[in-house]
Design a binder for these strands. Structure first.
Lengths: 91, 91
DNA sequence: ACTTACTAGTTAGGGATACTATCTAGCCCG
DNA sequence: CGGGCTAGATAGTATCCCTAACTAGTAAGT
């Protein structure tokens, strides 16, 4: 989620499409929006409402400075973790 | 878990030590034993009790044929998943 | 006008599961 | 005989993903 937002501000529905496009499955609204709300509660993202252009309004989310830091930190931990697991599964 | 068991039959406490050794943190009994019980319920592992050699008895777990197949299947999915996520986080 | 479909977001409820904490029990050592 | 290590089990709590249902705007077909 934070990785997608690192490419620039977007809104929930577009994030879901992006995740589906790259092959991470159809993330449903009931998963997506509570997660975004948690990220906002943790001050990792900020949101602003924009009127829709030929459709409903969109809530755009932007990574905060803390969100970027969190992403980089987690990316390192994720790399270490997956490396360890890969070794375990291949051995 | 299945990856550790792929190296040969072992018991819960030793699995926890192995996971701690490779850097996956201290997996607690409340996580470890229910998970092994689920794997056994799914016929992915089999267990047998062996009297302790200078200590309490040990419940040894062995990967079944289905367990090995499951491990290989999951390892492929895991590789694809982590590859996708890595690209997302690095972009 | 009515229906369908797509877009966009929200909420309630259930189920899976990882965690904390606690318990039993065998063995060894000081 | 208490403390510590080994070994396993269980209850209770919290998290969180999912299904399902809802509201609402727009557009196209009938």
């Amino acid at each position: 989620m934070l990785g997608v937002l690192a490419d620039g501000p977007t809104y929930g529905y577009a994030i879901a499409q992006r995740l589906a496009d790259v092959g991470l499955g159809a993330v449903k609204g009931g998963t997506l929006y509570p997660l975004l709300a948690r990220l906002e509660a943790d001050r990792l993202v900020e949101s602003s409402w924009h009127a829709g252009e030929g459709g409903p309004g969109r809530k755009y989310f932007t990574l905060t400075r803390a969100g970027k830091a969190h992403l980089h930190e987690r990316a390192e931990l994720w790399g270490a973790f997956t490396g360890t697991v890969r070794k375990l599964m291949e051995s």
